[in-house]
Design a protein around this nucleic acid. Structure first.
Lengths: 220, 220
DNA sequence: GTCTATATCCCGATAGAC
DNA sequence: GTCTATCGGGATATAGAC
């Protein structure tokens, strides 16, 4: 820890970065909900006021964590995808990375998807998604010349990956490497299944009778 | 509002139920995170202490909301599924209901899936899942005599439905009936696609090279 | 079963000194 | 850029009266 030459008080070389790290640890232990700027400060041994020199408010710090998370996310996906040959295998690899990221970098996943940060307030956050989105463009190699089909497939695969990831975190919060790998493989298999059955994505769902569904009141 | 005959102080006929309702409204407005027992009391015009006669703590009340939510959830699914003929159509209908539930009963969905209530603490909460799980047994009519395949398919469909639901809430928090119906239809189509491609679910995913993935540190 | 009152704790954020 | 001090607010939960 660097110490200011002028007085006895110490400085962080980079308090903003230290705060992001502390936030991640804190979120890992208590969840996004249990995170507070005050506690992060305490852990770094700085005053509760210090963070506000660098982040406008709590959300501002969370947004920085999310940006950081998306960088890791994109890197994990890219690494996993790298050597896969055909488009389907690349997409399956993406899903595998998606699930792994959720499990291995849980606090980052939580911050990105559950912190409730208003994206429109943080353009850098929107920009941080781009590298991920680009990787999804592989779908066009599968649905050649049919942009609508490609979009539908991309959405379906995103939903599937996200679903497996979220369900893993909910059902097995303490999953070890073994379980994580197994879940990632199942998700990857589901990706291939979805691709195989993709013809049904564009087909009309044949009836939408618009039932009346029971409301809360009718069940009292 | 019923008033006690004895004094000037009023009672609720059913404060526990009133608290659950108030909680739902509050969660609808501010999300689970913004919910507090104190605010719910305030809205009902009772003291902040009153709820603790009926619920041990905040989580206890949230668990009650979740149970309520699961009843509605099961009812919505059952109603949508009712008249569908073949298993695939029934499963597609379930997915449609799943997504609709998330969008139309957002606070209940949030409470069930995001409130972070410790299920093991609330057996009634586990029991409330059963009616939903039973409906998923339709998969056995598709994967006849192959229990493993049926389980894999059930998981895949659950993940898909959940993924579409969560993504809808994240991407279009203000979705109207139109958008909701469209999203539900896309999810239903994805269900049919997954079923169509289900052969790939049991197939080995052919390679699991276990890359080294970049860690947080290497990106600093 | 509900109220009043209270104890205890924590948080976000700001002002002003150094 | 960080600190001290502080304001203002809200939460959970308990004790004891009615």
């Amino acid at each position: 820890m660097p110490v200011s030459a002028k007085g006895g008080r110490y400085h962080h070389g980079d308090l903003p970065a230290a705060l992001v790290d502390a936030a991640i640890e804190l979120i890992a232990e208590r969840g996004v909900r249990g995170f507070s700027v005050a506690e992060a400060s305490r852990r770094l041994g700085v005053s509760a006021a210090a963070p506000y020199r660098h982040f406008a408010d709590r959300d501002d710090l969370l947004a920085a964590v999310a940006v950081r998370g998306l960088q890791v996310f994109a890197a994990m996906i890219a690494a996993e995808v790298d050597d896969a040959k055909d488009p389907s295998q690349r997409l399956a690899a993406m899903t595998r990375a998606y699930v792994r990221f959720a499990a291995q970098e849980r606090p980052l996943f939580e911050t990105i998807f559950r912190a409730g940060v208003d994206k429109s307030r943080y353009p850098e956050l929107q920009r941080a998604w781009e590298p991920v989105d680009v990787l999804l463009d592989v779908v066009h190699e599968i649905c050649v010349g049919d942009a609508a089909a490609a979009d539908a497939l991309a959405l379906a695969l995103e939903a599937t990956a996200h679903g497996y990831a979220v369900m893993l975190l909910e059902d097995e919060p303490e999953a070890g490497p073994q379980e994580i790998a197994a879940a990632a493989d199942r998700a990857a298999a589901a990706t291939l299944a979805m691709i195989a059955g993709r013809a049904a994505l564009s087909a009309p769902s044949h009836e939408t009778p618009s039932h009346e569904t029971p409301s809360r009141e009718t069940l009292g």
